[in-house]
Design a protein around this nucleic acid. Structure first.
Length: 585
RNA sequence: GGACCUGUGGUGCAGCCUGGAGUGCAUGCCGGCCUGUCAAGCCGGAGGUCGCGGGUUCAAAUCCCGUCAGGUCCGCCA
C-alpha cells in the first residue's frame, strides 16, 4: 500500500530511494545525520527523515552542520562501482545535489541521537523532542499507531461503536487514588479525572449502545513503575447481551489481528485456564506460558517424612530447573537468598545426578530422604540427570507465590523465551480477603457478577465465591481485565452488603448508576486492554515509557516542561484555593 | 512510607574499595589538511562547581552524615 506524500517541498522520502529511482530528479527534505568532507570539491551529506538515510553528494559543503534542516534537489544516480554501501537500504544510489537550501540551522545537540549511543534517561526526557528523532522512538510510536489502528478496525468490524466519555468526572471514592480538578464556577467543589470509564460505559449500556469501545485515557494518582504511569491508555470495551466467551472472542480477535500486523507473526489463539489452576501450577495469576516448568505438588509425598524442613507443612511444592545441577555453590546460595527475600523461610535444593536408570538426589537432606521419597520426587518433577529441584514448604498461598516468582525469574534466564503466548485467566475469586475493618475486599470491582453457581455462598462462604471476571495475560504481563457486570439490583445489594457498603453509602457513591439500573439495564460485560503494556511487549521494551511520547519520571515529573509547577496566586484565587504551609517530605 | 543502584568536560565511561595536583579513554565541539567517504581519516585546540550541603583529615571525586535528581523493586495500583 503506497500513500501519496509528495508535496511542493518534497517528492520522496529519503530512506525509500532505490535503484528504481535512478535518473529521476527528486526533492528531499530532512535533517543532516552525518557529514563527510573530502577537500574543497567533494562532500557527502547523510540526509535523514523518519524513513531512513540517503547519501547526498555536493560540490563543497559550505556552512552545514549536523541536524540542520535541509531542502535538497538533485538527480538519483547509481553509486560508482566499489562505493556501494550494503549496510544502507539506499546504499546502491546517491543524490547528486544541484540545489541546496538550509531551512533551519541547529545548535550542537546536548546528546547523541544515533542508534548506538546509550544516553541517560533523564537527559532523554528533558530533550524528548530530540529523543523522538531516534530510530527506536520513531519505530515504537509508529508501532503504537499501527496497533491502535488494528484494534479500532477490529472493533468496528465486530459492530462496536466508538463513544467518548468525560474526562471531568465525579469523585467515586474507591480503588485507585483520583486526580482532583477544582471547579471555578462552583468554588469548593471538584471533578476528578477518571481512573477508567467503567461507570460511564455501563451507563452507555443502559442507554442502548449495546457494543461500545473507546481508546480511552485513564488517570490514577498512584506511584509510578516501569509498567505504570499516571496516565495510560486502554482499549475500553463493553457489550450488552454478551457472554464471557463472546467478549473473550472479540478481544482475542483484536489482539491477534494487532499482533499479526505489528510484528508480522501469526500467534496461537489464547488458551484459557482457571485462576485456581494458574495459582496452583504457576504460582501467579499472570503466568508466562512461553515455557512450562510447572510447580509440582509434593505435599502428600512428604506427609510422613523425617526431613525436618518439610515435616508437617501445609504445602510442599517444587520446580525442576533444567541443567541446574551444574550451578555453582554461590549461584545456588543466591537462589536460596532470593527465596528468603520473597518471604520464604528457606529453600531446599536437590540435584538430580547419575544416569537416567540410576538417578539419585544430592541434597543437604540426602541422608534424611527415604528411597520412596527420592523416587517420588524424581517421578513427580520429571527430573532428568543434571536438573536442580527447588523445594519450598510452608503455607499454600505463599509457597505458590514465592515459587511462582522464582519460576518466572528463572524461566527468563533458562529458556530465554521469545514469541507471544496469550492466555485467558478465568474464574477469579470474587473477593481477595478482608481489610483491617473486617470487610471483604473485591478482587475486581464491586459491579462484578458472581458466578451464578456460587451465589448461595455469598453469605456463608464468600471467599469461595467465584466471579465472572477474567484477565488477558501475554508473556507474563497482565494486559487487561474485565468482567460480566451485575445488572440486577438485588444481586448488587447483596454484593454491596458483603463488601460492607451500606445502602446509604452506595447511594452516595454510585447513586446515579443504581438509579439507572432501575429503568431496564441489559445484562452486560466488558474488558479493558492496557495499550501501553501491549505495545511495549510488541516493541520488545521493558518500560512503557519507551512507547509513550512524553512520559513522566518515577516522581511524577515531566523533565521537559518542568511540571508539576506552582500555580500563580491569581489562578489559585480564581479557583478559591488557598495552600497549607509546605509539607515536609 | 521503605530497600537497593546510579550521579566525574556537551555525551558515554574509567578513576572511588586502598585519600595525595582534575589524571585518563571514547565520542561530540572548534580550527587546519584531504576528490569516494559512509559512525570517513589525519593533525592541532578548547572544554570540569567530580549533583548539592556538611563532617573527618595536613590533604576528599575517593571515607562518613545529610540532601536532591534519575532508575529498579516493596507498599500502593477496586
Amino acid at each position: 500500500m503506497s500513500i501519496q506524500v509528495s508535496t511542493s517541498m518534497r517528492s520522496n522520502y529519503c530512506g525509500q530511494l532505490n535503484e528504481s529511482d535512478i535518473g529521476r530528479r527528486v526533492k528531499l527534505a530532512g535533517w543532516v545525520a552525518a557529514l563527510r568532507e573530502h577537500g574543497e570539491h567533494l562532500a557527502f551529506i547523510d540526509l535523514r527523515d523518519h524513513t531512513g538515510i540517503v547519501q547526498c553528494v555536493v560540490d563543497g559543503l559550505g556552512d552545514i552542520h549536523p541536524e540542520y534542516v535541509l531542502s535538497v534537489a538533485g538527480v538519483v544516480r547509481e553509486r560508482p562501482q566499489g562505493t556501494e554501501n550494503d549496510d544502507l537500504p539506499t546504499g546502491r544510489v546517491e543524490v547528486a545535489v544541484t540545489e541546496l537550501e538550509v531551512l533551519s540551522t541547529a545548535d550542537p545537540l546536548p546528546m547523541p541521537i544515533d542508534r548506538r549511543s546509550e544516553v541517560d534517561e533523564a537527559l532523554r526526557l528533558k530533550f524528548r523532542y530530540l529523543d523522538l528523532r531516534k530510530e527506536r522512538m520513531q519505530a515504537n510510536l509508529r508501532l503504537r499507531a499501527k496497533v491502535n489502528t488494528a484494534l479500532r478496525r477490529t472493533m468496528e468490524s465486530h459492530g462496536f461503536v466508538e463513544v467518548e466519555t468525560p474526562l471531568l468526572w465525579t469523585p467515586t471514592p474507591e480503588g485507585a487514588r483520583e486526580f482532583a480538578v477544582p471547579s471555578r464556577l462552583q468554588p469548593g467543589n471538584f471533578y476528578v479525572l477518571p481512573q477508567s470509564p467503567q461507570i460511564a460505559k455501563q451507563l452507555l449500556m443502559v442507554g442502548g449502545f449495546d457494543r461500545y469501545y473507546q481508546i480511552a485515557r485513564c488517570l490514577r494518582d498512584e506511584d509510578l513503575r516501569a509498567d505504570r504511569q499516571f496516565e495510560f491508555t486502554q482499549l475500553d470495551i463493553e457489550a450488552s447481551f454478551a457472554t464471557q466467551e463472546e467478549i473473550h472472542s472479540v478481544v482475542s480477535d483484536a489482539v491477534l489481528v494487532a499482533t499479526a500486523e505489528a510484528v508480522d507473526l501469526d500467534v496461537d489463539y489464547p488458551i484459557k485456564i482457571s485462576w485456581t489452576e494458574a495459582m496452583d501450577r504457576y504460582g501467579t495469576d499472570k503466568p508466562d506460558l512461553r515455557f512450562d516448568m510447572p510447580l509440582v505438588d509434593l505435599t502428600s509425598l512428604f506427609s510422613s517424612t523425617t526431613v525436618n524442613v518439610l515435616k508437617e507443612k501445609e504445602t510442599v511444592k517444587a520446580i525442576c530447573l533444567p541443567g541446574g545441577a551444574d550451578w555453582s555453590r554461590s549461584r545456588i546460595d543466591a537462589l536460596v537468598s532470593r527465596a528468603v527475600e520473597l518471604g520464604s523461610k528457606g529453600l531446599l535444593w536437590m540435584k538430580a545426578v547419575g544416569s537416567p536408570e540410576g538417578m539419585r538426589l544430592d541434597s543437604p537432606v540426602s541422608k534424611a530422604l527415604s528411597n520412596s521419597e527420592m523416587e517420588g520426587v524424581i517421578m513427580l518433577t520429571k527430573a532428568q540427570p543434571g536438573d536442580l529441584i527447588a523445594v519450598i514448604a510452608g503455607e499454600y498461598g505463599s509457597s505458590c507465590r514465592i515459587l511462582g516468582q522464582l519460576r518466572s525469574e528463572l524461566g527468563k534466564e533458562l529458556f530465554a523465551p521469545t514469541g507471544y503466548r496469550y492466555v485467558w485467566v478465568v474464574d477469579f475469586p470474587m473477593f481477595e480477603g478482608y481489610d483491617e475493618e473486617g470487610n471483604l475486599v473485591p478482587a475486581h470491582h464491586p459491579f462484578t457478577m458472581p458466578n451464578p453457581e456460587d451465589l448461595d455462598k455469598l453469605d456463608s462462604d464468600p471467599l469461595a465465591v467465584r466471579s465472572q471476571s477474567y484477565d488477558l495475560v501475554l508473556n507474563g504481563w497482565e494486559l487487561g481485565s474485565g468482567s460480566i457486570r451485575i445488572h440486577r439490583r438485588d444481586i448488587q445489594q447483596r454484593v454491596f452488603a458483603a463488601l460492607g457498603i451500606s445502602d446509604q453509602e452506595a447511594e452516595a457513591r454510585f447513586g446515579f448508576l443504581l438509579q439507572a439500573f432501575r429503568y431496564g439495564a441489559p445484562p452486560h460485560g466488558g474488558f479493558a486492554l492496557g495499550i501501553d503494556r501491549f505495545v511495549a511487549i510488541l516493541a520488545g521494551e521493558e518500560s512503557i515509557r519507551e512507547v509513550i511520547a512524553f512520559p513522566k519520571t518515577q516522581s511524577g515529573a515531566d523533565l521537559m516542561t518542568g511540571a508539576p509547577k506552582p500555580l500563580s496566586d491569581r489562578s489559585l484565587k480564581e479557583l478559591n484555593i488557598s495552600l497549607l504551609p509546605p509539607r515536609k517530605r
